[in-house]
């Protein structure tokens, strides 16, 4: 079953479309990196996924259900500034979680916070940025959901806190097999954590798919100036100097021309390459999602 499925999804605020004609199909169990420039629609997509917004057009389904009412028990959301009740103690926040979620894992949450040395009697506003993020993520994990959505979970954290937050999140994935959707504008820090990419640009999906497949399909081709290599490929971006041509391309098969060298690319390279060419897109055709709809 797909964890997240968007069909013709659009969201308009007054006159501007924050998202438009979005088709997505994210398999269960993936850790999804949602990237894109500021204002690309990342937060809007995440808020739609947790029922804070309603679509203007189309549908967004989380494990087959629109995320309202009872389906909210399937998703957890950690918003960017980790909003929690500042005047509550950590224990009281756990109590909130327990009273607001029938499946809440109170013992697990206590253990996790004890491992992280976060005292239960501390008030939320006394916690450090890292501790606050850990508490917010602990509450989300303890809800025992199938999908956790995190908006910029690593922003404003120091490197150690980043590592600890990611470690905690990945341990939860290892334990429960949950699906994670997380946004960031620093792609480098998502490399080891995510296995699925959704790149948004100007409210549309520019690239979507498993990172492994994406990396396998894209190469930087360098060769002599004034010519193009033969073979089946699509050029996304190019850079020419007097002597040399560099092509950022998606290959269908290896380039047979020995004058051209194909360099492997990192996730950051691919993302940057697409961001520089906002008109190029690459994602599985929406037909699959629609066929599912009819069946």
């Amino acid at each position: 079953m797909t964890a997240l499925e968007a069909t013709g999804l659009g969201k308009r605020y007054r006159d501007t479309w924050a998202l438009r004609e979005v088709f997505l199909s994210v398999p269960r169990g993936r850790v999804v990196a949602l990237v894109g420039p500021n204002g690309a629609g990342k937060t809007t997509l995440m808020r739609l996924a947790v029922g804070l917004h309603r679509p203007t057009t189309g549908h967004l389904r989380v494990f087959g259900a629109e995320p309202y009412g009872e389906a909210l028990a399937q998703v957890a959301y950690v918003a960017q500034d980790k909003p929690l009740y500042d005047e509550f103690t950590v224990n009281e926040m756990l109590n909130v979680g327990r009273h607001l979620n029938p499946r809440f894992d109170l013992a697990g949450a206590r253990d996790r916070l004890a491992d992280l040395n976060i005292p239960g009697r501390a008030r939320v506003h006394q916690l450090s940025g890292g501790q606050r993020a850990q508490l917010a993520i602990t509450l989300a994990v303890a809800k025992r959901v199938d999908l956790i959505v995190l908006d910029e979970p690593l922003a404003s954290l120091d490197p150690l806190a980043r590592h600890e937050v990611m470690r905690g999140l990945m341990m939860a994935v290892a334990e429960t097999g949950l699906t994670v959707l997380l946004s960031s504008h620093v792609v480098a820090e998502l490399d080891e954590v995510c296995d699925h990419l959704v790149l948004l640009s100007r409210g549309r999906v520019q690239v979507a798919g498993d990172i492994e497949d994406i990396l396998r399909a894209h190469r930087m081709l360098t060769g002599p100036a004034g010519m193009m290599p033969g073979g089946a490929y699509e050029v996304i971006g190019e850079d020419r100097t007097e002597r040399q041509t560099s092509l950022f391309a998606r290959l269908r098969e290896p380039i047979p021309d020995p004058r051209w060298t194909a360099h492997e690319l990192s996730l950051t390279d691919v993302v940057l390459g697409y961001m520089r060419s906002p008109m190029s897109t690459h994602f599985p055709p929406p037909v699959l999602a629609e066929r599912d709809d009819v069946a």
Binding site: G51, L52, P83, L84, Y85, G97, L100, N101
Partner: peptide
Amino acid sequence: ERGTHQFAWTQSFS
């Protein structure tokens, strides 16, 4: 004002 609606409204209750 405190953004906590994003927390309160994404628990298991409508």
